[in-house]
Design a binder for these strands. Structure first.
Length: 445
RNA sequence: CGGAGCGUAGCGCAGCCUGGUAGCGCACCUGCUUCGGGAGCAGGGGGUCGGAGGUUCGAAUCCUCUCGCUCCGACCA
């Protein structure tokens, strides 16, 4: 993309309403525009990152064998009366009446609807196990939306639901989700620690929240510092292998790591003092096993091998997709702007033309731009007639992980500059080498 | 929902106390000079001061109501 033809309304000054760094940078980098309290438009670059995060979620769900579908944002109230949550959910649920005076609601989650779909079409244990998920906008009428997309009222969430014959199978689904979520977050350059949590209005017995450590996090967390040394990394996972998923789950959850809701001071104090940490965290996902809480009242049953009909065991699993943008920025920025991890960056690299209009630099930039495009990469070429300082400041703000700087001085010696946004380290290499390096960096991401 | 604030040009703000018909910086447009870390000079465009009502000869300014937004708290992916 050429910057002169793109829509990237960057702000030089900090908007007054933004209190935390991710909110400030998302506004300043022209990623979002607030339309009402807790409701945002996604401008092109913000939308690009949002879609990239969605794509990673989809890829990892597919890898775990989960099936994608799409349910509507608006739901009939009657479905929620069946589970009893229409009354329980309270003011946080946005209730709407249509022209026929039918009661509707903007879905805050989809347990009821997915259960309705399941019971309509699945009757036999032979169709299990089944995990269905979607990525859809949710609405929760928070009393106090804040921190930009971190606590919006409208937000994009991946929510998945597993249906299993037995508790044992459902717990495997739980473990499978835990492992697939770990991989999902790692691909986004995040360390999200599973922590034992409270179930809240979803209900259920087993639940873990995934927390990204950040000073601006809304949750207080307590953990054994050894958990931050564990990585899933590149290890091969067979998501159908119960024992393997179980062992990864145990590896990641046996050390102490809890939110303030479930914090146990006695257990915490048993950790060696130098490993005892308390910090703040951003919740970016949660997984639940809740048995037959919905299947029982809503009649989601299957006929088992013995011929009897039994309610299925369920769980639900969520990733805060839109919130992740905020979380990633909170975890990866400096005083000049965002630093995107390669996995989610809106453009693979930036090209800065230091002397727009100069025949040699223009030609060199065009050459690099086209070479990267031919390799299937997506560069952002700053072809504005701006001074170097302004171009650097924009690139730093929007946080592309790599920058190729092209100026007459370097070109005389046959080199351009390749700079890492994260380390600030620059190398002077030929244009061909710079293109090759960018291609190599993204080859396995 | 309790407490506290704020709505004046796209963004950041001053003016309000003490009424006299709107200003600064950035951004934007034109020209010239600049050009390796958010340039300089000159000129220019843009605002029914959130909305409604009231007081007054006269309201951004005072009064009443209302809408919106932000912050602290309780609640939450």
């Amino acid at each position: 993309m050429r910057l002169t033809r793109y829509f990237l309304p960057v702000l030089k000054e900090n908007p007054a309403e933004a209190q935390i760094v991710s909110h400030r940078y998302m506004l300043r980098a022209g990623m979002i525009k607030q339309q009402a309290a807790g409701i945002y438009s996604w401008l092109p670059m913000g939308y690009k990152v949002l879609r990239r995060i969605e794509q990673i979620v989809h890829e990892e769900q597919a890898r775990a064998g989960h099936i994608s579908l799409l349910m509507p944002t608006l739901q009939p109230a009657d479905l929620w009366r069946e589970s009893g949550r229409y009354e329980d959910y309270g003011q946080e649920m946005l209730r709407i009446t249509d022209r026929q005076k039918r009661e509707m609601l903007y879905g805050p989650t989809n347990e009821e609807m997915i259960t309705d779909i399941f019971r309509a079409h699945v009757n036999s244990y032979k169709d299990l196990p089944l995990t269905l998920y979607h990525i859809q906008w949710k609405f929760r009428d928070e009393m106090r939306p804040r921190f930009g997309v971190m606590r919006g009222r409208e937000f994009l969430m991946k929510d998945g639901y597993n249906f299993d014959l037995t508790k044992e199978d459902a717990l495997h689904a739980y473990n499978r989700h835990l492992v697939s979520y770990l991989r999902t977050y790692e691909r986004m350059g995040l360390q999200a620690i599973p922590m034992r949590a409270d179930s809240g209005p979803i209900g259920g017995d087993d639940t873990h929240e995934f927390l990204v450590l950040a000073e601006t996090g809304e949750s207080e967390v307590f953990y054994d510092s050894a958990v931050t040394d564990i990585r899933l990394g590149e290890r091969e996972i067979d998501y159908d292998n119960k024992a393997q998923c179980q062992s990864v789950m145990e590896e990641f959850t046996s050390l102490y790591a809890r939110t303030d809701e479930t914090h146990d001071a006695a257990l915490f104090d048993a950790i060696p003092e130098e490993r005892r940490k308390s910090a703040r965290g951003i919740e970016v996902g949660q997984i639940f096993y809740f048995g037959t809480k919905y299947s029982d009242p809503m009649g989601a049953t299957v006929v088992g091998p013995d011929g009897t009909r039994t309610p299925v065991h369920m769980g639900s699993h969520g990733i805060g997709v839109s919130r992740l943008l905020g979380a990633i920025i909170e975890a990866s920025h400096d005083d000049k702007g965002i630093i995107w991890p390669e996995g989610v960056t809106p453009f693979h690299c930036g090209i800065v033309n230091l002397k727009q209009g100069d025949e040699a630099t223009d030609a060199a930039c065009e050459h690099i731009y086209k070479a990267l495009k031919l390799l299937g990469l997506d560069p952002l070429y700053d072809d504005r007639d701006e001074r170097a300082g302004a171009k650097f400041a924009t690139m730093d703000l929007i946080g592309l992980p790599w920058r190729i700087t092209v100026g007459p001085r370097g070109l005389k010696n046959g080199v351009v500059e390749l700079t890492s946004r994260r380390t600030g380290v620059s190398e002077e290499i030929s244009a061909e080498d710079a293109v090759a390096r960018i291609a190599a960096i993204y080859a396995d991401i």
